[in-house]
Design a protein around this nucleic acid. Structure first.
Length: 201
DNA sequence: TGAATGATGCGCT
DNA sequence: GCGCATCATTCAT
């Protein structure tokens, strides 16, 4: 009998993964690996902190007040990237969830660098080694993600999430960070074993 | 056409 | 811990 090896279980998450309730997708993303084939080389990181934003129920969601040119991607098919610009200097990476027509997404807040660490350091020279991917803005900078990568298909070959098999993590659910409206909703999930999660503001 | 605002990070104190 | 940098997007004149 042949046993498959752990490393053989690297598989790209299919669109059906994203086409589920946003809170489920958010918590399931923890411990998975974000992979980006950047122009500089292959980058990857283990996801340890995410937040859910759900259009019709959530005043903090960009799509709460209806569809605009900027947030259009969130209303489309699940399994696409939604990247937007904030505060005049930062980009944030989201994954679109739920079926087409329902505006919702998961914000990627923190991760632990895996492959391509030297490239990440080069792209964000001001970050110390341990803080390369701690914060939504830092992730985009270290990965070289800008609005040009908005609307990428996460089932394509450039940007996607990998399941690398079993891993034991302790998931904690709390309220979200850095927003005013809807800040009582416990829609933030993180891996309590990771030093990379955001500290209380 | 203009002004307010924000899902942040950084440097300075 | 506080305040600023900095600009796309949005909504109101």
């Amino acid at each position: 009998m042949v046993r498959s090896v752990k490393t053989g279980s690297c598989k790209k998450l299919p669109r059906s993964f994203y086409a589920r309730p946003t809170l489920t997708v958010a918590s399931d993303l923890l411990g998975k690996y974000l992979v980006y084939h950047s122009p500089h080389g292959r980058l990857s990181a283990r996801l340890v902190e995410v937040e859910a934003y759900i259009g019709d129920r959530d005043p903090a969601c960009h799509a709460f007040r209806g569809r605009t040119e900027r947030n259009a991607v969130m209303f489309g098919s699940p399994g696409f990237s939604y990247i937007y610009f904030v505060y005049g200097m930062h980009y944030c990476l989201n994954f679109v969830t739920e079926e087409e027509g329902i505006a919702a997404a998961v914000l990627i807040r923190a991760a632990e660098p895996e492959e391509g660490v030297e490239i990440m350091k080069r792209l964000s020279p001001r970050s110390s080694h341990g803080d390369l991917l701690t914060g939504p803005g830092r992730i985009c900078r270290a990965f070289g993600l800008t609005r040009e990568q908005n609307g990428l298909d996460l089932t394509g070959d450039r940007l996607y999430v990998e399941d690398r098999g079993e891993c034991e993590i302790k998931i904690v659910q709390t309220t979200r960070i850095g927003i005013r409206a809807g800040n009582h909703l416990p829609w933030r999930f993180y891996d309590s074993g990771s030093p990379a999660v955001s500290k209380p503001r």
